[in-house]
Design a protein around this nucleic acid. Sequence first.
DNA 1: TATGAATGAGCTTTCATTCAT
DNA 2: AATGAATGAAAGCTCATTCAT
Lengths: 210, 210, 210, 210
Amino acid sequence: MIRNDSSTESRKDKESVILESACRVIRERGFHQARITDIAQTAGISYGLVYHYFKSKADLFDAILKEWWTDLFALMEEWEIHKSGVEDQLGALVIYFLDQYQKRPDLVHIFITEISRSASNLTPARLHWFKVFLSRIESLMARAQYQKLLRSDIKPRYLTYIFLGAIESFISAMVLENQPLKSRAQKQRIATGLLQVFLNGARPVKGGAS
Amino acid sequence: MIRNDSSTESRKDKESVILESACRVIRERGFHQARITDIAQTAGISYGLVYHYFKSKADLFDAILKEWWTDLFALMEEWEIHKSGVEDQLGALVIYFLDQYQKRPDLVHIFITEISRSASNLTPARLHWFKVFLSRIESLMARAQYQKLLRSDIKPRYLTYIFLGAIESFISAMVLENQPLKSRAQKQRIATGLLQVFLNGARPVKGGAS
Amino acid sequence: MIRNDSSTESRKDKESVILESACRVIRERGFHQARITDIAQTAGISYGLVYHYFKSKADLFDAILKEWWTDLFALMEEWEIHKSGVEDQLGALVIYFLDQYQKRPDLVHIFITEISRSASNLTPARLHWFKVFLSRIESLMARAQYQKLLRSDIKPRYLTYIFLGAIESFISAMVLENQPLKSRAQKQRIATGLLQVFLNGARPVKGGAS
Amino acid sequence: MIRNDSSTESRKDKESVILESACRVIRERGFHQARITDIAQTAGISYGLVYHYFKSKADLFDAILKEWWTDLFALMEEWEIHKSGVEDQLGALVIYFLDQYQKRPDLVHIFITEISRSASNLTPARLHWFKVFLSRIESLMARAQYQKLLRSDIKPRYLTYIFLGAIESFISAMVLENQPLKSRAQKQRIATGLLQVFLNGARPVKGGAS
DNA sequence: TATGAATGAGCTTTCATTCAT
DNA sequence: AATGAATGAAAGCTCATTCAT
């Protein structure tokens, strides 16, 4: 007798399917324009079932964000321990974004458009994690300035924005041009280029401030 | 006998008031979430009046975009004639954005969030002008590469995105931090810094590509 | 010195222009769909002015109906006095409708579509005149039955409807086909034909009832 | 174990209920004045549900018309096969209208007021079926003229209008008087009378044309 | 007289959410 | 677990009507 395969891990599975569908639809239409019906249709289930797994549309969105932040913060913790150099940590972040863009382009797109670009729309709770993230990058930048890797006449917070802006720009470009990352090598090349452009660009100027 | 000046130009004035309110509300909530009611309330008029001046919400949005593109393209024409160097033109663009951000922060914010960041959502007509804009920057970048000002191993289109991304990042930062530009000097300093970071960062590497 | 020709009879003139425009627009779109703006535009005036001459849209409509009924009842009075035969009176009615259709096709069309065909929409006041009209035709029919001109096994009211229905059908046909009445002769021919069809059709059957 | 029968065919049932309510409301107020709220209220449901079953108000209206035309054309096909004489076919049409008026007075009323009387309002798609219908009657009339059943000096299209006008008049009369058809016998009597009036009225005149 | 800016009730439509089955 | 019928708040848009000029 064949095992009813929809049982054991079914809950987790369905949840994932819904989350993935939600990502796709939210990426395509934006959070506010994404309809539960679309998400359910994409997931191949009825819209009523979405409410069996998630309390509300906001709840569903929060689950997506949670997934994103959990992974990211876990990795950043790890880097803190295993990567001594600031450059390495920044490089790891670039790679992480490109990696994620390869694996979960929708998720990265949502992070960029729905979080970092429309921070003014966010609920306080959602804004919180974003701010924590910014602070962490900011302290990396401050450390880099202390180590004379980056010019000190630009506020760390601004450097943070320039850095993230560069990553976002690249990914946005690829999204817009519909260019998926094809090879490991290409990814590495882009990551290196990106980091270089930033580090060179923000390198301390000879003879001091602007 | 001087006439009550609230009559003569009343139509243009009201239109401007509505446009301005629309900018503000759209910036605060995004185009789709911006309600006519809010716009009217912000303008201190009844929502019916909005429809007296604009055919529809989309029409109102188009009027905002038109204002933006008209000004920008007019200036770019002028630069083409009066500014010989690529650096000068890029610098002028940075200054323009910062200027506009000072005068019309909402408008700049809308450009960034509703146009350059959600280009995939735009109607063909709206997308058109954005694409024209991108092409113009792109040819500037190509020219800069030809003049060995910028490294040639990154596609001009990508350089375009990095450049605009840097501008956007800066402005986003200021929006997020709620930091208005205070002085002419500050604006000049930021503009120079921004341009330097970009030019230094994307400067040709000794010994060639990648 | 040229006389300001817009003065003396200006009120009456404007009123007529508005009424005529209203007729045309109401015919084209129906009463409920006819917008004051359309009427004003057709009349070549601003919509505000309509309210100078008519209290409201309903008032305007009533003025149209009044015109129609006043003329019609005046003529019917006259026929009552000068036309002895029932046939003559019915013939006069047919001619009247065709005459009016020639002179004021919109008005006839409104009578047909907005009054006789959608009696359920009418306000009690408007319905009143229509019912008076029906009664008068009905008594003509009863008289014709008494004179053995028409079969008696159909209620006079039904004969009334058949008769008016025939007129309406003809005119509707012409409206639909966009066929204006071209000559006096054509009008006369149609009137005669119409009356004949009705009188022949409703002539008492040999040997009596149903 | 018999299932609660309110479930199985619930969809079809609700749709019918809505269609019926729509017919009633549209009859009472006309298509443009019929509010979804009224229709829903009449059906005893919330207005949102109307949109669950029909895409839009226009869609709902089209569904009504489709019902009407489908039935009518199906029958006309059948007559074409089984009824040899023109008289029989015209008679069948009269009976059909009276039948329908008995069963679905609202539907008949809508056909008369919203379709045959306001052809100018109709969308091309809606007008299409009406024109097809008219053509079919028209060819019946032409055939009847060929068989010398009807006078030939009136265009078949005009005869069509007179014929339909007569039917409409009768039914309008009954609508206006609020007189439902009471018995089979009464229906038969009216049908016969109506057909007679038309055929007698439009019978070829001795000695030829008008 | 004449204009059209201004108002707001009222209508269609969308969609998150609930709930009976 | 799963469905989709049912609800109703909310938003865009229309248009009769008022009123300052």
